[in-house]
Amino acid sequence: MKLFRMAAVLAVLAGPAYAQAPHINLLQDGPGKTDDEKAAEAERERAYKDTLKKIPDAKTSSDPWGGMRSDPPKQAAPKASAATTTKKPKAGTAAAN
C-alpha cells in the first residue's frame, strides 16, 4: 500500500515537470511552395497592406464614460457678490496704524 501511495505522489509531482518538456515534431516538413503559390501569397499580402492604408485613423474620445452621460455637465452655481465675500478685519487686530 505504501508503494502505491509513493507512486501516486510521484506521478502528481512529475505531471507539471512533464508539461514543461520540449515537444519535438518527428514529422518532416511538408513540401515547399511552388513559384505560383509564392506569387499568389505575395499578391495577397500586397493587397492586404494597400487595404490597411485606406482605413482612416479614427479620432476617439478619451472619456470612457462619455456614452453614459445623457446631459452635459451642469454649470456651477453663480458666486455670491463681492461685497459679501470680502473679509472684514477682526476688532482685536492691529489693522490700523
Rank of each mutant, 00 (worst) to 15 (best):
H23C: 05
G92F: 08
G66H: 06
D57S: 05
D71W: 03
P16S: 02
A58F: 07
A80R: 10
T84K: 10
F4M: 09
K53V: 10
P16A: 03
R46S: 08
S62Y: 02
R5L: 14
D29C: 03
D71Y: 08
L10H: 04
S81I: 00
K90R: 12
K33G: 06
A39H: 02
D63N: 15
A83I: 07
V12F: 11
S61Y: 05
P56A: 04
D50H: 07
E45K: 14
A58P: 00
K38I: 11
N97D: 12
G30I: 11
A7F: 08
K38A: 07
D57A: 09
A77H: 07
H23R: 15
E37G: 04
A82Q: 06
T51E: 15
V9E: 04
A19H: 03
Q75F: 06
A8E: 08
A58C: 03
K38N: 07
E43S: 10
L26V: 09
T93V: 11
P78L: 06
R44L: 10
N25V: 13
P78K: 14
N97W: 02
D29I: 00
A77M: 09
K90L: 08
M6H: 09
D36K: 13
S70E: 10
L52P: 00
K90G: 14
D36S: 14
S62E: 09
A7Y: 01
K53A: 15
A82N: 01
A91P: 01
A17G: 07
E41F: 05
E37M: 07
R46Q: 13
K33H: 09
S81F: 04
A95T: 15
T86A: 03
K59C: 01
I24M: 12
A47I: 11
D57N: 03
L52I: 01
Y48R: 15
N97C: 01
M68D: 09
N97I: 00
D63M: 10
K53W: 05
A91N: 03
E41T: 08
A80Y: 04
K54F: 00
K33M: 12
E41I: 12
T34L: 01
K79A: 15
Q75W: 05
L3E: 12
Y18E: 05
G15F: 10
A91M: 02
A42D: 15
P72W: 07
A47V: 08
L10F: 11
E43G: 06
G30S: 14
D63I: 09
R69C: 01
S62M: 06
G30E: 13
A19I: 01
Y48W: 08
L27N: 13
G92E: 15
A80T: 09
K74L: 09
E45D: 12
L27Y: 08
P64L: 13
L3M: 04
S62L: 07
P56R: 02
A95V: 09
A96M: 05
P31M: 09
S81A: 14
K90V: 04
Q20M: 12
D36P: 00
A80V: 08
